[in-house]
């Protein structure tokens, strides 16, 4: 039931955003359409995990942390690009992750790409290969994952 509700609400929000100055007709059509699609998903996707309200909170938290890190990453990158000597010393590190679900791993790799000075270049089972632009300054390889692994673990497991 909660899965159905979540699908319905998110579909309807996307519909609202896409046809923003809403008329009554559009509201009715959108809710009917979202209802039908949510029903179909409910019927055909039986083994889906039960959606937890707690993970919504953690996803929001993830998003806020992510935006802050994104801005830091950009300032860092701007500093490197503007410096005339181009202070780079690229290296590739291997990092193990504890996350199990594919979605969580993909999100972790995405957020590593957008955190300061690091980019994920390959994902092999539970190993992430991380390319670091200032490899000479790395002391703690686990720290490359940033604060995201903990939050994603709470959200998806």
């Amino acid at each position: 039931m909660i899965n159905f509700l979540f699908t319905f609400v998110s579909l309807f929000l996307v519909w609202t955003a896409l046809s923003y100055p809403l008329t009554n007709q559009e509201i009715i059509f959108g809710s009917v359409l979202s209802f039908l699609i949510a029903m179909l998903v409910q019927i055909y996707n039986k083994e889906a995990k039960r959606f937890k309200v707690k993970s919504l909170y953690y996803l929001l938290k993830y998003f806020v942390v992510f935006l802050v890190e994104l801005i830091k990453a950009n300032l860092n990158m701007a500093r490197i690009v503007v410096t005339p000597k181009l202070p780079i010393s690229p290296k590739i590190y291997e990092v193990k992750t504890e996350l199990k679900s594919n979605m969580a791993k993909a999100l972790l790799a995405n957020s590593i790409t957008l955190t300061p000075g690091t980019i994920s270049v390959d994902l092999d089972d539970d190993t992430i290969y991380i390319h670091v632009v200032e490899g000479a300054n790395v002391n703690d390889v686990e720290g490359l994952k940033g604060p995201f692994e903990k939050i994603l673990k709470e959200a998806f497991e």
Binding site: L70, M77, A78, V81, V82, G117, V121
Partner: peptide
């Protein structure tokens, strides 16, 4: 400004991995 920095980064970095470092981050923001 950040889009410009992304372009500058792609122009100045020596190889593909570093270029995509600069390009992805700056152009996203």
């Amino acid at each position: 400004t950040f889009s410009f920095l992304a372009g500058l980064g792609i122009f100045r970095m020596p190889d593909i991995l570093n270029q995509s470092q600069a390009g992805t981050k700056a152009s996203t923001l």
